[in-house]
């Protein structure tokens, strides 16, 4: 899988499925594999296939509706990281274009 893009000045990577899976492992260590399989299934993703650009958003949507409040909170965290990345990447792009 290709490395996710990074906002260089902040060293911030765009959240990807690997980061989200690691978050699921942190908050649900005992049931992480089953939870992850369920989330991929709800998102309509096959874990073995390359994912489209919208895979992160689809998994986050599945987390929010999973019925598990801690997994939904984890989705909120991913959303904040994603939003941080998008805002900082947009600013970096504007600065690049001004040079």
């Amino acid at each position: 899988m290709a490395e996710p893009p990074v906002v260089a000045a902040y060293g911030l990577r765009r959240p990807d499925l690997d980061q989200i899976r690691a978050a699921v492992r942190r908050v649900s260590p005992v049931t992480a594999d089953a939870v992850w399989a369920g989330l991929l299934s709800s998102a309509g993703l096959d874990g073995a296939q390359p994912h489209g650009d919208d895979a992160v958003e689809r998994v986050v949507a599945a987390m929010k509706t999973s019925g598990d409040p801690v997994i939904a909170l984890c989705a909120r965290a991913v959303t904040i990281r994603l939003s941080s990345y998008e805002h900082l990447a947009a600013t970096a792009e504007i600065v690049r274009n001004l040079r």
Partner: peptide, 16 residues
């Protein structure tokens, strides 16, 4: 939270 700080209340904050 585990991977972010969520700003639940603020004053004087702007920007990203």
């Amino acid at each position: 939270l585990d991977s972010v700080q969520l700003i639940a209340g603020s004053d004087g904050l702007d920007g990203w």
